[in-house]
Amino acid sequence: MPIAPPCPPEWLAGLDALAERAIGLSEPNPRVACRLITRDGRWFEGHTQHAGGPHAEVMALRSAQAAGVSVQGTTAIVTLEPCSHHGRTPPCCDALINAGVGHVIVALQDPNPQVAGRGIARLRDAGIRVDVLDPTHPLALASRALNVGFFSRMERQRPWVRMKLAASLDGATALPNGVSQWITGEAARRDGHAWRHRATAVLTGIGTVRSDDPRLDVRLVPASRQPVRVIVDSRLETPPQARVLQPPGPVWIYTAADAARSAAARAALQAQGAQVIDCPGPPKAAGGSPKVDLAAMMRDLAQREVNELHVEAGHQLNGSLLREGLVDEVLLYLAPRLLGPGAGLAQIGPFEALAQGIALSFIDLTPVGDDVRIRAHVCPRP
Results as ranks from 00 to 15, higher is better:
residue 8 P to S: 13
residue 14 G to Y: 03
residue 40 D to V: 09
residue 42 R to F: 11
residue 75 T to D: 07
residue 77 I to Q: 11
residue 106 V to T: 12
residue 106 V to G: 10
residue 113 P to L: 13
residue 114 Q to G: 15
residue 117 G to F: 00
residue 122 R to N: 11
residue 128 I to H: 01
residue 132 V to N: 05
residue 134 D to R: 08
residue 137 H to R: 10
residue 143 S to A: 15
residue 147 N to P: 11
residue 147 N to M: 10
residue 156 R to D: 09
residue 163 M to I: 07
residue 166 A to N: 08
residue 168 S to E: 06
residue 169 L to C: 10
residue 180 S to D: 12
residue 196 R to I: 07
residue 207 G to I: 04
residue 208 T to S: 10
residue 216 L to C: 01
residue 219 R to A: 14
residue 234 S to V: 01
residue 236 L to H: 03
residue 241 Q to W: 07
residue 245 L to W: 04
residue 246 Q to K: 12
residue 251 V to F: 09
residue 263 A to C: 09
residue 265 A to Y: 02
residue 268 A to N: 14
residue 269 L to F: 06
residue 276 V to E: 13
residue 279 C to S: 14
residue 281 G to N: 10
residue 282 P to G: 07
residue 283 P to T: 00
residue 291 K to I: 03
residue 298 M to F: 05
residue 298 M to K: 07
residue 299 R to Y: 05
residue 302 A to Y: 03
residue 306 V to G: 04
residue 306 V to Y: 04
residue 320 S to W: 11
residue 323 R to A: 15
residue 329 E to K: 10
residue 334 L to G: 07
residue 341 P to W: 01
residue 341 P to D: 05
residue 349 G to F: 12
residue 362 F to H: 13
residue 362 F to R: 15
residue 363 I to G: 02
residue 367 P to E: 10
residue 371 D to I: 01
